[in-house]
Design a protein around this nucleic acid. Structure first.
Lengths: 108, 108
DNA sequence: ATAATGAATAGCCATATGGCTATATAAATT
DNA sequence: AATTTATATAGCCATATGGCTATTCATTAT
């Protein structure tokens, strides 16, 4: 989880994920193309994504193809969702309670 | 977005968010209680969460109350969701295509 | 066999991170 | 007024980060 969120906390890596989502499996070079960074920099980013399990590396000869792995994305998404919705539910209950109290106000 | 994901990339901070989701607004001290870390460390974590917009600080005298802020959580969640579902959709279309091709195989 | 290509590794740099202690600030208590 | 309490700030440390260049490794092309 730490690794997933950390990997997502960088714009370059998020853009790489976006590319994979749009275009399917891409090579390291293809993933590099939109950015003006040195090749080893991309190599590092890819290793971060791989260690987080967000991408899977398929080695075909000298070209490394990267595939998006949705399971950890889903886990991260679910973590956020659980906590966000729980809290929003609490807010709603609170709101109802306050409204109900407002209705009662005159009667006290 | 960078800030949100980065803030979520630390277990202590995620646990603090979980506490806020469960218990509503909490003070810095309350948020510190489950962890065995020095007070300034929590202060730093709270600043990270605040700068990411994930929490709002309400100063009441000498106690700082922290509230969970769902908007950036929702944005982060949506970002993941968009890319994950897009890619899963692509996989499904691919699967259908492969299945269809399998069906045709004999006829060639 | 040689050259060219795709990617990884090594090693460096500046900056950021999460942790600490010590101290300061601010507000509530006595 | 003095003390205690809640939090922040300053400053230090070790480690991690994202970037680079130079080099290496492995594979494909000539």
């Amino acid at each position: 989880m730490d690794r997933s969120f950390h990997a997502l906390g960088d714009g370059t890596r998020r853009e790489m994920i976006a590319m994979l989502a749009r275009n399917g499996a891409l090579s390291a070079n293809e993933l590099r193309s939109p950015f003006s960074v040195a090749q080893p920099t991309i190599s590092k980013h890819l290793k971060v994504l791989e260690k987080a399990g967000l991408v899977r590396r398929e080695i075909n000869g000298r070209v490394h193809l990267f595939h998006l792995e949705t399971a950890p994305l889903r886990e991260a998404e679910d973590w956020i969702s659980r906590h966000r919705t729980f809290w929003e539910g609490t807010l709603q209950r609170l709101e109802k309670f306050v409204n109900a109290a407002d209705g009662q106000e005159d009667k006290t």
